[in-house]
Design a protein around this nucleic acid. Structure first.
Lengths: 195, 195
DNA sequence: CGCGACGTTGATTTGCCTCAACGATTGTGG
DNA sequence: CCACAATCGTTGAGGCAAATCAACGTCGCG
């Protein structure tokens, strides 16, 4: 992957929602850094300030919190073409509640907060792009609440599996269990029943 | 409440995130309708297309879905100064999955979809305003996932109660139970234990 | 090779649901 | 203005989905 390819991945995604001419595209490039991320590397550690908004060009990330009982709770996955950040921390520049960690080697586009603010003044329609991104993310979480509360653990697993069969293969089972809201042991028992 | 007061409630909220001059404010007024909402009135019924984005000036609303077992599942409440809509349906103009209903008499500002699109071209910084709104809403739902999965039903209730003691008084208990993800009977038993 | 991370399996426990019956309150029509 | 129904909350008995705890197998990797 060249840096040009990486930029193209990002601008292609932006063009799903807004138009971008080549001048804007190269202006954008000045505000973005591309970064190779190693497996298990953290983009954000809770308690630290979230410095940037990350666009996943390649790879798979998890956003998770620490529970009182000391376990880790996954609240969100981020794969190709997703933006991921602790927006509360990014916005307020206060310590973050969540962690963001790579689950495999990957590449992200980094948009640091001051760069993002300046970029918005230069290319105001990027506000529109992010409005769409966040609107979709928010709508998706509301659907997720519906499924969490209306389905049993087994139903959630089978439903998620049917929606994202290839994604399930990419991540350890105990992480999927955490995301779906039950224990790894329980997931193992579901899978033992039949397939 | 006069129509001027209603407009002021909306523009005051917008000014928390963007600047608005009086010309823009009166331009905005051309694209908004204010509407009194009766108790139990629906702003949106599932299966219908979500025609507008609603800003709650006064009152309390619930957004809910129907589960396979025939019960209603509340995924979100909307009170004063919240925008509420089925954004998936609003964006795609496909039938909505969710319902939106008033839980008390209220007043909303209605921003219909064509009006919203035209308004964004006239006052582009409103894209920024909605980006902030959605960013906060999305961040709040991620925190909610953390609490759902890391706390017991009783802990969720006590925590929610301590955060929003006055809101809890405004709504029937069975709706709070639905939002928190357990049964009304269980909530009743929690309350019986101690205050 | 040996250790740590991950998955499996079984026994036991428990948080919460289901179902049913029963007050209390509200509102509505005669 | 009262009678009655509907809505909402409470309480209890019994049951089930999923957690907990513990032991063990396996694989990948340093």
């Amino acid at each position: 992957m060249t840096s040009t390819d990486n930029l193209k991945a990002l601008t292609d995604h932006m063009r799903r929602f807004i138009t971008l001419d080549t001048a804007e595209e190269s202006l954008l490039a000045n505000y973005i850094q591309f970064r190779d991320v190693r497996n298990k590397e953290h983009l954000l550690v809770s308690g630290h300030i979230c410095k940037a908004n990350y666009f996943v060009i390649k790879g798979c990330f998890r956003m998770y919190s620490h529970t009182d009982s000391g376990t880790e709770q996954i609240v969100q996955f981020g794969i190709d073409n997703w933006w991921i950040a602790d927006y509360t921390s990014l916005d307020s520049q206060q310590p973050s509640f969540f962690n963001i960690q790579a689950l495999e080697p990957g590449v992200v586009a980094t948009l640091e907060r001051p760069a993002q603010e300046e970029l918005f003044t230069r290319i105001p329609k990027l506000e529109r792009y992010f409005r769409h991104i966040l609107q979709r993310a928010y709508a998706a979480t509301l659907m997720r609440f519906h499924y969490i509360f209306s389905q049993s653990g087994e139903e959630r697993y089978r439903h998620f599996n049917s929606l994202f069969p290839d994604f399930v293969q990419r991540i350890p089972q105990y992480m999927l269990a955490s995301y779906l809201g039950f224990t790894p042991e329980f997931l193992s028992k579901i899978r033992a029943k039949k397939n």
